[in-house]
Design a protein around this nucleic acid. Structure first.
Lengths: 159, 159
DNA sequence: CAGAATCCTATGCGATACTG
DNA sequence: CAGTATCGCATAGGATTCTG
């Protein structure tokens, strides 16, 4: 796929995000990073991915500014991979995917990993899309517009 | 990749979501569906993807319960692809990816498509991850636990 | 226009072996 | 343990053609 079709010049932020993440492995690496994984071996065990693939993905994520390489915290000569602020900004993406999966791909009672609030251990509230003034928005309440210049929508999508 | 490594039996909802979506094309199809695309040709023009690929992806999305096929609303003999409730539940995922992209892949003032509130046309509020009782949560405020049985966390991740 | 059917190639990725 | 190097195959997906 010639490195797949590139989306990095699209004017759609979704496409650029998708392009920047690269592939699903990368996203699962990020997931594990949020879960606390920092070492090469941790990621490899958590993912069951071939080491060459993992190494390549880690490099892409580091180059893309999602992960940072830091000296190992335990004093060993290796290093660790930690999320950058940019990588941490993927938090809602991971949470959104997690909640979608929880809601649609598990039988009631089926064991699964779950993200909880550390204080009290309760599951998170479902993500809510809101307007600038705080109203809850459904998909139909939104439109995608093309912003031509500095922040001024050029026109609402007709519909 | 023998249809890539399967994640559909993972106990992680993120992995199952990723597996169900299939690939980036599918996600961009969903994005366009949220933007109002319904017809084969609309998706194709919006994505610039080969028709066979598009057809295959649409089938996967329909089979997966993300899209539904309905008779064309304009009376033509073709049909249209509309989001199912399950598909509409991907809304936060798309919004999250969009916001990440907006925040990290565009220069200030660089033209891009933007999702706005239909009422007033203002951009959306940034997604916020919240606890069950409404506190804002950062990644560090959360943990991923393994739920063994009916809703009772088996133990917090040590860290 | 909406697809299905072919053909073809680049490459993602899995497996394995090797290094420090 | 943390990677790099090499090999090989399946296949995603691009291009094109054909049909109703």
């Amino acid at each position: 796929m010639v490195r797949r079709t590139r989306f990095d010049d699209s004017d759609c932020p979704v496409a650029r995000s998708v392009d920047a993440i690269g592939d699903w492995w990368s996203l699962l690496i990020v997931r594990d990073a949020f879960d606390g994984s920092r070492r090469f071996g941790e990621f490899q065990r958590g993912l069951g991915v071939a080491k060459n693939i993992l190494a390549a993905r880690l490099r892409v994520l580091v180059d893309g500014g999602v992960l940072d390489v830091v000296p190992a915290s335990d004093g060993s000569s290796y290093h660790e991979y930690v999320l950058t602020p940019k990588g941490r900004d993927l938090f809602p993406v991971i949470v959104a995917l997690r909640q979608w999966g929880e809601g649609h791909f598990f039988e009631p009672g089926e064991p699964h990993s779950e993200m909880v609030d550390r204080q009290g251990g309760r599951p998170l509230r479902a993500l809510e899309v809101r307007s600038a003034d705080g109203r809850r928005l459904d998909p139909d309440d939104t439109a995608v517009v093309k912003v031509d210049q500095l922040g001024t929508p050029a026109g609402a999508v007709p519909e």
